[in-house]
Nucleic acid binder design. Sequence first.
DNA 1: TTCATTTCTATTGATATCAATGTATTTAGT
DNA 2: ACTAAATACATTGATATCAATAGAAATGAA
Lengths: 148, 148
Amino acid sequence: MSNSIEIPFSTTLMVRDTCLCLHVQRAARALARLFDDALRPAGLTNGQFSLMMSLNRPEPPPMGPVAALLAMDQTTLTAALKPLQRKGWVTVMENPRDRRGRLLSLTTEGKAVLVRALPIWESTHAMIDGKLPDGRVARLRQDLLALS
Amino acid sequence: MSNSIEIPFSTTLMVRDTCLCLHVQRAARALARLFDDALRPAGLTNGQFSLMMSLNRPEPPPMGPVAALLAMDQTTLTAALKPLQRKGWVTVMENPRDRRGRLLSLTTEGKAVLVRALPIWESTHAMIDGKLPDGRVARLRQDLLALS
DNA sequence: TTCATTTCTATTGATATCAATGTATTTAGT
DNA sequence: ACTAAATACATTGATATCAATAGAAATGAA
């Protein structure tokens, strides 16, 4: 019988130390927890905050561009809207110009939630900012954009 | 009646452009899709690859350290192990030295899956690496670690 | 106009993620 | 040894994520 083929432990350490995907997933989970904790008093998760903030526009956007902006699957956006609709913070209406599409907008109450969440975002983000040397944050954002 | 308080659109644009959490979540989703697509022929997702690779050690680790390494909640790890156990790629056994704990190890078949996945990871990671200017990747990893 | 194609979204099923909570076991203080 | 506290993990419930698929409407080619 063929003996098991194994990956050497050194390779495991190399992958662990160099894998960009793993590094980004780790940071994503850590930052998500951080912002979720901070935003909890406002009743929002980090993802809900980003989504609702992206809906704060002069004109209600259709779903496609919003999903693209957040770099998420369209079906994920459909699902993410459900709890926000239930809470009455977001409305999803048929686009009169294209009846396949939907237009997303914040309700008055949704805007109020966002107003309460904004200072939390500001202070939390300022704290994160302080964790990295000056100027480094801009480059980090640029690099993350290149990966998106 | 009090008129609605709104966040100016300029603030929305500022948050969209500067929020590190959003940038990291975006990159995390994009990279996850990229690696998931590449690893699909091997039957693994990016997260399963990272998890199984982290189990490729001389001694089977308990769950706590593995969850910490991946920067994920312990309950998430419990859930993530389920499909891998079902497929017979990972075994979860009681720790004889501490009967509260579990020891995680790859099966022979699990190691074989990992062997098949490794070259996919290598080529995919090389492609990502090429997207960023030389030397920038190392700094990016360092910054992501600082956020974790 | 008609029909094939494309576009926009929803649904289903599977996994991922975490908070809240519960259980069993170990450890520490006495 | 006994008990309180801490530790390690599992379960439940809710949301997040995407692939596969399906439906409806718009678009384009003839």
